[in-house]
Amino acid sequence: MPRPFTPKVVTANALMSGEVVYLSADDQWTPRLTEAEVLTDEAHAQLRLVEASARQSEIVGVYLADMAPTDTGPEPVHFREEFRRTGPSNYAHGKQVDL
């Protein structure tokens, strides 16, 4: 039995600001994880990653991040993604104040 596919979002950093961004279903880069498209099918996720990777003039370091879908949007499965969507813990900098 293949392992069940963990849902994903496409994430990257914005080319100019470096800010963490997510790919939405309507092909926009959004700073809000809640607005990210949740990819539940592996083949579709790979396709979206390839499409996103081609947008070199907008982003840098694109990859698929594991998420758990919830009623309020995707939630990080791993603490690294939790820090990326929030900001550092030593200062109120980054998304925790900017959004």
Binding site: E19, V60, P88
Partner: peptide
């Protein structure tokens, strides 16, 4: 670009450059 930026001390980190 990456080899050029690294030669000049520019990294991409978790939240920003």
């Amino acid at each position: 670009f990456k080899p050029f930026r690294l030669m000049n001390g520019l990294y991409l980190q978790l939240h920003a450059y």
